[in-house]
């Protein structure tokens, strides 16, 4: 059925406010540029809001929205002749479920900030050069006066330490283990 009005059982503004950041980040992690992610985030909500929809539970809704975003992303790649690596996307979904939880990544970002402070100054500098200053591995190596391979190892180790730190923090915090219910909420499907 073509666009029907949404059921009054949920608030569209609230839905967008709650999930837009998560969807935008998810699309960015799929490989979209910032502006592409914004457009696809918009398309995701427009698509979902076109059809009857019931917002039962935030985690399940987030998973459903990601699935729609995922499909739109695949369409987008096909239209623009980009290569789609399905395996990587599935792997990414699994990682997303593991790390991001149901708060669109707010907790992960906070944990990451705490854990980042625990890194050595040299590792912090390397990551800053990479992610803030957008330096290449070779440029980082020159600044830090180490080899290119050394710079790569330094950053990989730093990221491993960050992951381990976050894992420890997530275990000590109250786990939120609700499994995303990917069964659709779309009453039409």
């Amino acid at each position: 059925m073509a666009s029907q009005p949404t059921t009054p059982s949920f608030d569209a503004a609230k839905l967008i406010e709650t999930h837009q950041t998560g969807i935008w980040r998810y699309l960015r992690s799929l490989g979209c540029e910032g502006h592409e992610a914004e457009d696809l985030t918009q398309d995701t909500f427009l698509k979902v809001l076109q059809k009857p929809f019931e917002d039962y539970e935030p985690v399940a809704t987030a998973a459903y929205l990601r699935r729609v975003a995922h499909n739109l992303f695949i369409d987008f790649c096909r239209r623009h002749g980009r290569r789609i690596v399905t395996e990587e996307i599935e792997q990414l979904d699994a990682q997303w479920n593991q790390w991001v939880k149901d708060d669109s990544g707010t907790e992960l970002l906070e944990d990451l900030a705490v854990c980042f402070q625990k890194l050595t100054p040299r590792a912090q500098q390397a990551l800053r050069l990479r992610y803030d200053d957008k330096k290449t591995r070779l440029e980082i190596a020159e600044i830090l006066e180490i080899g290119e391979h050394g710079a790569k190892n330094l950053m990989q180790r730093a990221k491993q330490q960050l992951k381990a730190c976050i894992e420890r923090k997530q275990k000590t915090d109250t786990p939120n283990t609700v499994t995303p219910n990917s069964t659709t909420h779309n009453t039409e499907e």
């Binding site: 837009q20 935008w24 960015r28 799929l30 992610y131 803030d132 992951k163």
Partner: peptide, 20 residues
Amino acid sequence: PIFDLFLEELLSEQTPPDLS
């Protein structure tokens, strides 16, 4: 990609846009 994204956000002090 997920870690890269969050690291980039954290270190370059980016914030996701408000598209509401």
